[in-house]
Every structure is written in C-alpha cells, then in structure tokens.
Design a protein around this nucleic acid. Sequence first.
DNA 1: AATCCACATTATGTCCATATGAAATCGCAC
DNA 2: GTGCGATTTCATATGGACATAATGTGGATT
Lengths: 340, 340
Amino acid sequence: MATIVDVARRAGVSQALVSRYLNKRPGVSEKSRQKIQTAIDECGYRRNELARSLVRTRTRAIGVVIDSLETGFFEPLVNGIIEAAERMNYTVLFCLTRGRMELKDRAISYFTHKMVDGVLVYGSDMMDRKIIDDLRAQSFPFVLIENDEPGVPVDKALVDSRDAIRRMTEMLIERGYRDIRYIPWGRGLRAGLERKQGFVEAMDAYGLFDGERSLCFAGAPDLEPESADVFALLRDMAARSELPEAFICGADIRAADVLMACSRLGIDVPGQLGVAGFDGDALMLPYYGYPELTTMCQPLYEMGERAVEMLLARIDEPDLPMRTALFAALLRPGETIGHR
Amino acid sequence: MATIVDVARRAGVSQALVSRYLNKRPGVSEKSRQKIQTAIDECGYRRNELARSLVRTRTRAIGVVIDSLETGFFEPLVNGIIEAAERMNYTVLFCLTRGRMELKDRAISYFTHKMVDGVLVYGSDMMDRKIIDDLRAQSFPFVLIENDEPGVPVDKALVDSRDAIRRMTEMLIERGYRDIRYIPWGRGLRAGLERKQGFVEAMDAYGLFDGERSLCFAGAPDLEPESADVFALLRDMAARSELPEAFICGADIRAADVLMACSRLGIDVPGQLGVAGFDGDALMLPYYGYPELTTMCQPLYEMGERAVEMLLARIDEPDLPMRTALFAALLRPGETIGHR
DNA sequence: AATCCACATTATGTCCATATGAAATCGCAC
DNA sequence: GTGCGATTTCATATGGACATAATGTGGATT
C-alpha cells in the first residue's frame, strides 16, 4: 500500500511538498502539482485517514446512536442530520442499537475511543443515564435528541411534547369533545410519559379527566399497545356501543391503527369518532382514501440540523455553556377532528 | 487527555506493561493488574483507537453503504449483519446515501481511507459500476448485497429473484390463473429487471405473455408506481370491469397497495382477484383483517450474516477466490391466491 | 551458591501523515 | 551579476499505541 513517501519519491519531490499539495496549502507550483497528481494516480495512493486524524486529533466524522431507523418517521430527522453535516463537510455514521444494551455500549465505546469527534444520542430510554454520565465524565462532545435527563446539564434538542399534546387536547375540548381517550405510545421513553402528562393536564384543567377510564391500555403490563391491540379495542368498544367521542394518540402510527380499524369496522371518522395523532409522520393513509390525520408535527428536519450545529459548536468549543433547543410542535389540521 | 504513558506513570510501572495488560497478553502479575486498573480508572484513560488501528492496520469495524433504512423490510438484513459482526467482535457503521451520488462517494471515501476494514454495499443501482471498479482497483475488501455486476468477479450475496418470480408465476399458472399482470418494483435496480424477467419468462413458456398488456405501468416514465397509482389503476380497472385474474407484484409493498385498494373498492381477494408479492416483508396487514399475503420470502437475515462472513474472510485472506452466495427465495403460502 | 522462572524494564523502531523553521534553490527582473 | 520573492528541501518533532530484543529483578528450587 502506497504511502505519502512513495508518492513523493515517484514524483521526484519531497514528502513535505506532497503534504502541502494534499492539504491544498499555498506554495506549490503548477508543475509540481502535475507531477504529484500523476504520481498519485499511478500508484493509486489514498491517504491514511487514521494517521491524519491521529495527528489532527479530529476525524471530521460524527456518530449517531439510535435504536433503529426502520420507519419513515426518522426520514426527516436523518435528512436534517445528514444535510447539516454535509454542509460542514462531516461524515455521519449510524450505529443501530436495537434496544440492546451491549450494542449500545459497543457503539458508544467505538465512537468515544476517538473514532469520531462527537455523537448524537437519539431519544434513548430512561436507562441511558449511565451512558450520559459516562460521556459527561470523559467530556466527550455529545448532544441528546428527543431525550431529557432533567437536572443534568447537557446539550439537547427536543420537542415540547407535553405542551403539544396539551394544546391538542385543549383544541378538541374547545371544539366540544368531552369523552376523550388517550392511546399511549413510548414504552419506557421519557417522551412517552411527557405526552401522556400533557393529555392528563389538559383534561384535568377542564375537569374532564376520568382516571383510568380516560387512558387506554393503562393497565397493560407494558405501556405500548400493538396494532392488533388497537384493532381489538375498537372492535370491542364498537360491539358494546361504548365508543368515546375521540381518541388522542401518542403517536401517528397508533392513530393510523385507529383509522384502519375504523375503516374495517365501519366507524365514521370524524362523524362518529374524532382521531388525533402526534408526530407528523409521513403516513400514506390518504392515498387509500382515508381521511387526512389531524396531528401535531415535530419539526424533525430542523431538529436534526440543529443538533448537528450544536454538536459541532461543542466540538470546537468544549467550554460553551450547555444549550437546550426546545422546539414547538406544529398543529397540522386534518380531517379526522370535527366539531361536536 | 490521558495517554498510556500517563497510566504507566501513575501506576508506577512501565508503559510496555500497561500495553501488555491492555491487550490481555500474559505476563502481568495480579498486583500489577490491580495497580494499572486503578490508574486507568483514576485518570479516566481510554485508549486511542486511531493510534491502535494505525499500528495494527485493522479497525475491527465494517461499513455498510445503503440508500436508506427506513422500511421494516431492512430489519432482518440489518439484524443479520449486526449479529454476525457482533459475534466476530466487529462494529458496524451505516452510511445512508439517500440515492445521492455525492453522499455515496463521501461514504465510500470515508470508509476506504482506512477507517474500516471492509464495506458491504447494498443493492445499489446500476450506476454503481464506477464505485465497484473503484473498490476493486484499490483492492479494498467489499461484498455486494442484492446487487450484481455480471462479468465482474466480486463477492456477493443475493437472491435469485428471477427464479423466484418465475416459480411464483408457474405456481399461479398451475393453479389455473391465465390473465396475470405484473406490477413492477425496483426502478433502476438490476433486481427490478430480474424480477420482471422471471415473470415474462414463465408467462412466455406457457404462451400467456401478452406484451405490454401483461405489464402494468410498462409505459410509465419511471418504472415504479406509487401507492396512489396502484389505487388508481385498480379503481379504473374495476370501473371498467377489466380486472385480470391475478396480480404478481415485484414487491410486497406493492402487493399491500393492491390489497388495500381491493379492500376499499370492495374487490374480494382471492375470490375475484389473486394477489402475490415478493420479499417476505413483515407487513402488518393481517392485523387489520386483510388476508395473509402469498409471497416469496427473501432470507434476508441469513444473507446479512453470510455477507459479513464473506467480508471478514476476504479481509483476512485477500487472495481468496471470489464467491457468490446465491439464495433461493422461499414460497410463503398465504390466503391471497386460490384456485381457478 | 548456582539455577531457573516469572515478571519487569529500557530502549528503540514502527505505523503514516502533519507541521515547522531554517536553509537551499529557482526563475526572473533590473 | 545582484537581489528578491517564490518554491522546495531537509531534518526533526508530533500524535498514541504496539512490538521486540536485550537486560534486569526477585524469589523459589535444588
């Protein structure tokens, strides 16, 4: 494998000059440039980024630690991250952790052993306290996305989801809905709790909160229902004529479950039942003639961009005060909520 | 930032001994181990993998270059890759290229500049000839997944999709279907062509191929229809009472489009219309009472595992002859194909 | 006291690119 | 031919870990 010395020898110049050329520094004559480029092409030289990064103490890469990417939901977030990084000439590496602690440890360990300049940690579960402490202890640059560890000073970019669900709930109440139920999302995620809280708070403020009754699946062993559970819930409610006036869902994917169940069970939305979501997920429902979902959109693209900016700033300036980028979700009116 | 020398000084031993300890080589007394570990903990030492990789000429990481991961389809593939790599103590880094050549170049460039030991390139489009040539020219270890560049000797793991669709088509014909249409998938992908070919071949063999008529969207500017297009196609066909006997789809996601359209249009499957897919995608359709899809499953988990094994073998032994792992798709009988 | 082994150290070279300051060389103008 | 600025070389240090050969301990064994 050719090294910079081989190139220099082949081009008949000094190694220092090749380095100058490679790093686009001034002071290399046109003639030398030619000779060097020819030599590079001839021996197929590629510079060893390990060595370069070692001396530079920078890799110009950032890592993203995330559970999975396998839903369209992440698309804008990932795009925001990639675009912002690209603009700053950084490469983005994803490590998927699949909810497994060993993989998460391995990912963080790989990244923090100087293989990237910083990491983004996505909305990991509440177990992550250990990882956060670890990163802080080594003062390795990192930014949390969609995660919060109250009381711990860290850089983070997140949506105020409690506020968002509260606003959504208030909107429904103002439109005359009273018997509103919440279908949760986010088992073990802080954001999941926040969302539920927002619902409870708004309902409470109007004296409409009816304890367990307002919360679907509240008694389930784990907080988060599957698609099939939602279908079963609706089927049973419809069979017993016990449908509420509306469902607010902790995530669009659950709202989609509700809409599809309604479609198959012959329940009219929003005539018989109102449905609201959360996320602004790019669901394909409308294509099939389903009504367009009323939901709160997370500005994920912007969050991704912002997280990258914060991270790069932290890398350059480790002593910057910690910042929180709190984003407001945006109401996207759809056709699944009417008036009562 | 602490280095190995700092640790040695702190522990009151030599740097060589610390290195021995770190690399789990024999010849370190229990007393020394203790002292060294204490010193490591005290100064929060983390070894610099850049330096280590530089001297080792190995990073124990592999890169995956893939367009996107945002569909459940990739889950088994990604799992297979991650698990196999984990077993061999390798870290997996994903670079998402979003169908953009600059990003693909950046990813490949980052990886090949010695930052990983090898790369997996997923089913990239036919434009990728340049990248493949490039990797070959530098003899950088790589394995193609779901991609083929006929005539070029490379390591690859792929499904024989032509054979799979051919078998599916034959199965339908044997069950009495005659007017079968193909809905394509895979614009610009070699696999997309292969799948269509399989259909055409089987139909031709039975004298049933009816040119453009057998191929939906054949005249469309780009090969691949959207969900909405499929819905429109079905709606129009139904309106004109021109439904075929069955659709074979180049991908499950298109078959799902057909099923959902049928559901909304009141078309009975498989009574009025047979539907077959390809992929073995983990679609959630059955939850909503849709019939279970008859499809050809790609053994993606195994392919992922195998690709990693091939890659690691190539890394260890660059002169191994090139291998092709050809996987047969497996028929998963469902409820969407009957008899005629 | 001689021998042996396990553990340690010292010193030096390696991996590869980058950085730097001083010294050397070049082309070109006057 | 002198001088000047631009180009280029040389030599050496840096980044952090690893490898190795030679040498040096201490303690137990005989």
